[in-house]
């Protein structure tokens, strides 16, 4: 006796094609398939982001407020130590806004990188036991970093509105472009690091150190004018400006730090910023594809390396 449900099932299965399991070969077709797979699991991606966020602040009474404490405390430190005591605030108008804009961009980048680097390792229980498109773990880290950014950005907007420094010119598009560019770049780097860290655990610590250095390699607590005065016109300046984070931070500042666009303040910007941003964005897209290919090659052995 054949159960009718069983019969229906076998008829349905007979109609499905037998698909090869595992890594998607082919430079472009493989990426397309992976993207399709991730798109199919987008609900899970959302749940993983929520899990990370909810779990982080589950038992604290202040909850989300804590995610603001770090950037706010950093703002206070830099405002008083660098701005007032060292006296940078005299050279940089609206120093508090300037620093907070830079910090917001920087926090987004560093959160994406440091979280996604360890994302596979910290989800090893899942990686070893269930098949999921593994890119989902670094992407979930990007998601939770974006949420943190959103909260910080709202505070920033509130601050510029309250202080009467709300950007009204089209320069704000710089910030939007910088955001897209920075997220693309950080995601591609994060995906690559997530895969590599499984094989070389030292990367986790190396990334921390490099992030600490990179913080000072971008004009976050000092303005670009200082850089121009020091190494303006030299090859060093070009190297400095080749850093995608620097360009992103500059884009955020140009869009949201209104005082920098007032001609009387004499703030200088690097030439061809829009072009630089577009070029870096396009390179980041290529880099993202490249990272995904590498990740896809590496992920076949994740389950046994962990």
């Amino acid at each position: 006796m054949i159960d009718p449900e069983a019969h229906l099932r076998s008829v349905r299965i007979a109609l499905l094609p037998l698909a090869e399991v595992g890594r998607h070969r082919g430079a472009f077709a493989g990426t397309a398939k992976s993207v399709g797979e991730i798109w199919d699991r987008r609900e899970l991606l959302g749940l993983l982001v929520r899990r990370e966020l909810r779990a982080r602040y589950k038992n604290s009474s202040l909850g989300l407020v804590w995610s603001l404490m770090r950037p706010l405390s950093q703002l206070l430190i830099y405002y008083f130590a660098v701005g007032q005591i060292i006296g940078l605030a005299r050279a940089v108008p609206d120093f508090a806004i300037f620093v907070f804009v830079g910090l917001t961009a920087w926090t987004l980048f560093s959160e994406i990188i440091s979280n996604s680097t360890v994302s596979i390792i910290s989800n090893q229980g899942l990686v070893k036991k269930v098949y999921l498109p593994r890119e989902i773990f670094p992407l979930a880290s990007v998601g939770s970093a974006l949420f943190g950014f959103l909260v910080q950005f709202i505070v920033l907007l509130a601050a510029v509105v309250v202080l009467g420094r709300f950007p009204t010119s089209w320069d704000i598009l710089y910030a939007a472009g910088a955001f897209i560019m920075l997220v693309t770049f950080a995601t591609s780097l994060g995906v690559l690091l997530a895969g590599l860290t499984v094989y070389a655990r030292d990367l986790e610590h190396l990334v921390e150190v490099v992030l600490a250095v990179l913080f000072w390699a971008s004009p976050i607590v000092y303005s670009y004018s200082f850089v121009q005065n020091a190494i303006g016109g030299s090859a060093l300046e070009q190297i400095y400006l080749a850093n995608p984070i620097t360009v992103a931070v500059l884009g955020f500042q140009r869009g949201l730090w209104v005082a920098g666009s007032v001609p009387a303040n004499g703030v200088s910007w690097p030439p061809d910023m829009a072009t630089r941003m577009v070029v870096i964005f396009l390179l980041s897209v290529v880099f993202l594809w490249f990272s995904q290919r590498i990740f896809s090659r590496l992920q076949g052995n994740f389950a046994q390396e962990l």
């Binding site: 037998l18 890594r23 229980g125 269930v130 098949y131 389950a303």
Partner: peptide
């Protein structure tokens, strides 16, 4: 289940898969 890639050879599969390798994964 596709959790480990074979060194050589091909696995083909169809239909919906659930792997109960661990209860309460995640």
């Amino acid at each position: 289940g596709g959790i480990i890639q074979p060194t050589t050879g091909v696995v083909r599969r169809r239909g919906r898969l659930a792997a109960l390798l661990e209860l309460g994964a995640g």
